[in-house]
Design a protein around this nucleic acid. Structure first.
Lengths: 155, 155
DNA sequence: TATTGTTATACTCTATAACTATA
DNA sequence: TATAGTTATAGAGTATAACAATA
């Protein structure tokens, strides 16, 4: 078991990252500023659909969000009620249904993402392009490595 | 509003980081492997005390954890019931009470931290010391900048 | 009158279990 | 019989409000 002090210093930083984003209500502020009226998990569904660039099945949304199916169903119910997404039949499988962004949903997600990006831009205004690139690369690699380790573990 | 694509790529990585640690039950596994029987927020209290290196007041624990007082009270109640911490009078202020790690609590936290560190070491075994150092530096700086921005915002 | 902490309650997010419909 | 999705329920984690004791 290696006792790398650099790694030991990394762990509390990860904890702090989650804590400060939660405490700062970053998502909630951006949602309000964008004039949207959905909660965080519903927003996650919208972002997942927007990132995918097209309709997704419920199960696929759950996988990408790393949550379970029933959770997605509830969010989609709420989003559909608000007219931000709609469900359409999957021509390939009658059991499945595709969830699709409605125009209002696509607009909302766009406004939200611009808000959040603006907030981060403000906080990291003093960063060089090199440092930003390095952080994106290293953080991305760490997430990939952690994901691989999780997927390797027995349930 | 800058539209830095590097920054735009960073955001989903942060989301994924939280998601994979949650989905992988990293904390829960380490707790089990260390033979501890406390939940995550209680563990946070223990880690906070261990990091501080000495007794802390309830309010100070809440500040460091970035949560609210009553939440800490509940965790401390549970930890005290299990004999992992104890409360002592604060000689400087009769309103306050100091929370102190009991020997069993200190042992438990040590075992837990070794488990988590081992897990991360395994996932990041292929990393050079340079990359680890760079990530720790850049992530730490980002967290500090985000924290400063949150603290600057009006409630 | 302000501050420290506690008790009681409520809310948010996500999981598990049981069920229906189609493959 | 396996899979996609839904409904209903339960649990973990944290917040807000009201209060007590001391400064």
């Amino acid at each position: 078991m290696s006792d790398d002090p650099v790694l030991a210093a990394l762990l509390p930083r990860i904890t702090q990252l989650s804590a400060v984003l939660s405490r700062g209500r970053v998502v909630e502020r951006a949602v309000a500023a964008a004039g949207i009226d959905v909660d965080r998990p519903a927003l996650s569904v919208l972002i997942t659909l927007q990132t995918a660039g097209g309709p997704l099945r419920v199960g696929e949304i759950a996988t990408r969000m790393q949550v379970v199916g029933p959770h997605v169903t509830r969010q989609v119910n709420e989003l559909e009620r608000r007219g931000l997404v709609h469900r359409v039949a999957d021509p390939a499988d009658q059991r499945a249904r595709l969830v699709e962004l409605a125009p209002g949903g696509a607009d909302a997600v766009g406004r939200y993402l611009r808000e959040v990006l603006g907030w981060f831009s403000g906080a990291m205004a003093g960063w060089s392009e090199q440092d930003r690139t390095d952080l994106a690369r290293l953080l991305g690699r760490m997430v990939d490595d952690l994901t691989a380790q999780v997927d390797d573990e027995p349930t």
